[in-house]
Amino acid sequence: MTILSPKTAVPPAAAPADLPRAADPAPAPTGPPLLVLDDVHIRDRAGGRDIVRGVGFELTPGKTVGIVGESGSGKTLTCRAALGILPPHFEVDRGSIAIDGTDIATLTPRQWTDLRGATISAVFQDPASYLNPSIKVGAQIAEVVRVKQGLGRRAARHRALDLMAAVQLRDPELVHGQYPFELSGGMLQRVLIAAAIAAGPRILIADEATTALDVTVQAEILDLLADLRERTGLALVVVSHDLAVVAQLCDEVLVMRDGKVVEQGPTETVLHTPRHAYTRLLIDEHESYGLDRFLAPREAA
């Protein structure tokens, strides 16, 4: 919630208030890139070394970029850099990041506040830790729209209920009045996604957002993200340690290891003609030990 709570009262242009339920087919969303990373290096000033060394990709509306790597590979730091929330003594020391055409190095704290939630938003692995345990979840979603869109109490409540329906929480009225401890991990992650999309962002970063969940719940959350992408043209960055999670959802894949991108390209290409040994290891694991052993291989692209 940190990235969503800062005070501002700038209503985003054309907030997709009816985004959720409306099943109207969104026009094929394309356009100029929303998020551009160019040869980004992230330095740990305390340790005196570059932790991330050269990450670059372009994300256009309705598209999904996936980042795969083990813990410590630099994928989360890359996301945090794009959100302007690097931990203390980490900095982008080479390369550039642009959100919707604006180089983030030039942003003032005030501009960052306007951007977060309204243009770029995120969900992370442990949803419970982003919610206040002593405030009902409905009120926590409503707070985001009150702060970001300047809605009144009543309107904010309605909007919160709409958003909760949009993320397919079964009984929004009931969940609205519940505390985080009363909800399952999958429901909490939906609440977090509802809060993250509350101010109608155009980019959503999902950093290991389904890692702690059961397989069927993980699929539900991934399906929900795919739905949102199709209905609203939301652009996604999906970060996972599991190549298969990324393969299901992404147009382009980056494979990271020790802070470097060891392989990058369209998902089909990376899966069919992996060039780096590490990518081959990830693919082999699935093909020798996973479900892929028993299922028909994907048709050539």
Binding site: V215, T216, Q218, A219, E220, L222, D223, A226, D227, D242, L243, A244, V245, A247, Q248, L271, I283, H286, E287, G290, L291, D292, L295, A296, P297, R298, E299
Partner: peptide, 22 residues
């Protein structure tokens, strides 16, 4: 369960099949 497991290749169930099963 089978249709939800992430796979590299064609998943065992489509998004709408999963929704129907749920």
């Amino acid at each position: 369960l089978v249709g939800s497991a992430p796979t590299l290749h064609t998943p065992a169930a489509s998004r709408s099949e999963r929704a129907a099963l749920r």
